[in-house]
């Protein structure tokens, strides 16, 4: 998109003029920055992936780029070893079981709350919203002890939940939902507020009730905001180690990938060849999520609603 914009500005100035040169220069700088950023991201990623296919002896003695020239020596040893030594399959499954509900729950609640904050009238609305958003500033470490205490008192522990035939992650889901809600609500409320009020008034006259407006007008129009929120929240939960460690860290059979990963290498740094393979797994999922949702970021879905 930025490239197209740059191309458009190019044509406005006469060839060779001062303006033309400065625009040209701007375009070049833009390209250099974009390419630089891309390289800065791609090179280490490629390095990590290539390393994960190299024998440990090679990893220890030469850089990953050495693998690109003969003699070629690629192996699946790291992956085999990883699957033997650790419960990687379970860990990946656990990560999904933690991340998906921990994304869906807060985003759903936040969408309803944001609609109320943005478009419904009730007493002290703005003060409640302010207090809600103020929670963004509370460090989540502060909440560990009270929340854990609450969980223990009310039986939201892994043992209890398993005994009740409930998913053992419920406590973790609720915690993540709580940590994600202030930001999610804030982001969505701001987005909903920016929707043209004419649409709501028109829907009101057309006879749409509050819930119909929410499901048939707000949600379809908010796909870009929801998509970005889902990406943020999913990435945060998927990559989270601290919260998972606190709430389910003691039980490897329910712990997610990050906890498993942390346990792979010991304090002396041994076994880091396994980390390359494990890191690949923990990376690939967020990448797929991002790539599959990123087109919603750029789609101007509101075009054509108001103004001629």
């Amino acid at each position: 998109m930025s490239v197209a914009a740059a191309a458009r500005t190019e044509s406005t100035a006469a060839f060779g003029s001062m303006q033309w040169i400065s625009q040209r220069l701007g375009t070049i700088v833009l390209h250099v920055v974009v390419i630089g950023l891309t390289l800065a991201w791609v090179v280490p990623t490629a390095g990590l992936i290539i390393s994960s296919f190299r024998p440990f002896a090679n990893i220890a003695t030469s850089g990953w780029w050495a693998a690109l020239s003969p003699p070629y020596a690629f192996t699946l040893d790291n992956y085999n070893q990883l699957f033997e030594q650790s419960n990687l399959g379970t860990a990946i499954f656990n990560s999904f079981m933690v991340s998906v509900p921990s994304t869906v729950i807060p985003v759903t609640i936040a969408a309803f709350a944001a609609y109320a904050f943005a478009w419904m009238k009730f007493p002290a609305r703005d003060w409640i919203f302010l207090a809600f958003v103020g929670l963004l500033a509370v460090p989540l470490q502060l909440t560990f002890i009270p929340v854990l205490k609450f969980y223990v008192e009310h039986g939201i522990t892994i043992e209890n939940l398993t005994a009740l035939n409930l998913p053992p992650w419920v406590g973790l889901w609720l915690a993540h939902a709580g940590y994600g809600l202030p930001f999610s609500t804030y982001l969505l409320a701001n987005f909903f507020r920016a929707l043209p009020s004419d649409l709501f008034e028109s829907a009101e006259i057309d006879g749409a009730g509050t819930l119909t407006v929410f499901f048939r007008i707000i949600l379809p129009l908010s796909v870009p905001a929801l998509a970005s929120l889902v990406i943020f929240q999913f990435l945060w939960v998927w990559n989270d180690l601290l919260v998972a460690l606190i709430y389910v860290g003691g039980s490897p059979e329910v712990a997610p990938l990050t906890v498993n990963l942390a346990g792979l290498t010991n304090s002396l740094g041994q076994g880091y060849q396994l980390l390359t393979a494990a890191a690949f797994f923990s990376m690939i999922v967020p990448l797929v999520v991002f790539l599959s949702l990123q087109r919603y970021f750029v789609r101007g879905i509101l075009a054509g609603s108001v103004k001629g």
Binding site: P196, D198, E201, S202, L221, L302, A303, S305
Partner: peptide, 14 residues
């Protein structure tokens, strides 16, 4: 039992 046409048209874009 009224219908209104808005200045911005207020069409549902999706």
């Amino acid at each position: 039992d009224i219908a209104m046409v808005f200045q911005s048209y207020a069409l549902y874009p999706h």
